[in-house]
Simulated scan of single mutants.
Amino acid sequence: MADRLTQLQDAVNQLADHFCNSIGVLQQCAPSSPFPGFDKQGGKSPAAPPTEDYAPIFAKLIARTAKDIDTLIDSLPSEESSLELQLASLKKLEIENQEAAKKLEEVVAKGENLLHQIQEALNDIAHCQLQCQALESSSPPADP
């Protein structure tokens, strides 16, 4: 849950950045308004407005970030997720864990049984090889 809270905090910070940047661009690109008797530019013509329209860009960024925030909020646990529900969930997980442990013990027991059978078979093979070698060495060589 802490991860989701961090993501939510990052998304809110990103939304604040988008708002600040959009206001800064609006201030930078907005045409000046003339006030009679108070002319700061000293007779200069105002700068031409930018050719790019930033409003749709910032609108998309803000809308997308707001949607991300809604999604993150929906993924947070609700207040209905009380201690009793959490304890019930933990009990269920503990039961599942115990069942998995029993299955693991059964598999380990089967594996040990197979290992024992393989060791007996190898032992029998070794005895047979030793007996065969003993018979071959005790028998007289054949005369051609």
Rank of each mutant, 00 (worst) to 15 (best):
H116N: 12
P141T: 12
E105S: 12
S45H: 09
K60F: 08
A11S: 06
E136M: 08
Q7I: 04
Q117C: 00
V25D: 14
D124A: 11
D10A: 11
F19L: 11
D3Y: 14
A109N: 14
P141H: 12
L26H: 14
P36Y: 02
N21C: 09
K44L: 12
K67T: 10
S138V: 14
V12Q: 13
A63V: 15
C29P: 07
K44I: 04
P34G: 09
L85F: 07
D68K: 04
L85I: 03
K92T: 00
L114Y: 01
Q133Y: 11
Q131N: 06
S81D: 13
E99T: 01
N97G: 08
L122P: 00
L130C: 00
I23T: 11
E80A: 06
V107Y: 15
F38D: 08
S89T: 00
K60P: 06
E99H: 04
G43M: 02
I23P: 09
A59G: 13
F38P: 03
D17H: 13
P56R: 01
C128M: 10
I118F: 09
D39F: 05
N123E: 13
S81G: 06
A100T: 02
N123H: 11
K91Q: 14
F19M: 14
S75F: 04
R4W: 15
C132N: 08
L130H: 03
N13R: 13
C128K: 10
E94K: 14
K67L: 01
P140S: 09
I118S: 12
E80P: 07
P77K: 01
F35Y: 09
P34D: 05
Q14P: 04
V108W: 13
A66L: 08
Q119S: 10
D74P: 05
Q133A: 08
S32I: 04
Y54A: 07
P50L: 05
A109P: 13
Q119M: 09
V108R: 14
E84N: 12
L85V: 00
P56K: 02
L85D: 11
Q119Y: 10
K91A: 08
Q7Y: 07
D124I: 02
T6C: 14
A48G: 05
L76M: 04
K92E: 00
E79M: 02
G43C: 03
S138D: 12
D124S: 10
V12P: 05
G111N: 12
P36I: 02
A88N: 04
N113W: 06
P49L: 00
I125V: 08
L87F: 01
E96D: 04
